[in-house]
Computed example of a mutant assay.
Amino acid sequence: MILITDETGRVTLRTNEPTETQRQKGEEVADLPTPESREGKRAVLYLDADNQPYYQYVDAPLSEEDTRKKLDEITQENAGLVMGNASQDVKITTLEQENATLTMKIAQLEANANV
């Protein structure tokens, strides 16, 4: 098998029936390593400086269905956060009211103590 790479070593062409030009330009490789299966990644074939093949793993683009699922998950998470914020806002308002009430009681106590 002949592998032809770009300037970074990334394999751009792999053929078992190379032309003479491809044979001269490329590197002959007997076997390729088996790529690992990594979720959300895809294997990109490279040749190292010794012309040994290896894979680098890059983020794979999401399918339309996966994109929709991810959007639904984020939307639900966002809704939960909004509800959580609303709950916190209610607690803050309650605490502010309690603080105002206690401040008034302190003022009354101080006024009564000065009489």
Rank of each mutant, 00 (worst) to 15 (best):
I2G: 00
I2M: 04
I2R: 09
I2V: 11
I4L: 14
D6M: 08
D6R: 10
E7I: 09
T8P: 03
T8W: 06
G9K: 09
G9I: 08
T12F: 03
T12N: 06
L13Y: 01
R14I: 10
R14T: 05
T15K: 10
E17F: 12
E17R: 14
E17N: 15
P18W: 05
T19A: 06
T19S: 15
T21G: 02
R23P: 00
R23Q: 11
Q24Y: 05
Q24M: 10
K25M: 12
G26Q: 01
G26H: 01
G26N: 03
E27N: 09
E28V: 04
E28M: 04
L32G: 04
L32H: 08
P33Y: 01
P35T: 02
P35V: 02
E36M: 12
R38N: 06
E39Y: 08
E39Q: 13
G40C: 04
G40P: 02
K41R: 15
A43V: 05
A43T: 05
L45Q: 07
L45R: 07
Y46H: 15
Y46T: 05
Y46M: 05
L47T: 08
L47A: 07
D50T: 10
D50Q: 15
N51V: 05
N51T: 09
Q52T: 13
Y54R: 02
Y55M: 03
Y57C: 02
Y57P: 07
Y57F: 09
Y57S: 02
V58I: 11
V58Q: 13
P61G: 04
P61A: 14
L62K: 14
L62Y: 09
S63H: 05
S63T: 15
E64R: 11
E64S: 12
T67G: 09
T67K: 12
K70W: 02
K70N: 08
L71F: 06
E73Q: 14
I74Y: 08
E77P: 01
G80H: 10
L81N: 10
L81I: 14
L81Q: 11
M83K: 15
A86E: 15
K91A: 06
K91I: 03
T93V: 07
T93I: 08
L95R: 02
L95Q: 07
Q97T: 10
N99V: 01
T101M: 07
T101L: 09
T101S: 11
T101C: 00
T101E: 13
M104V: 09
M104K: 13
K105R: 12
A107D: 14
Q108D: 14
Q108Y: 08
L109K: 11
L109D: 09
A111I: 08
A111Y: 13
A111C: 03
N112Y: 12
N112C: 07
N112E: 15
V115I: 14
V115D: 13
V115L: 15
V115S: 15
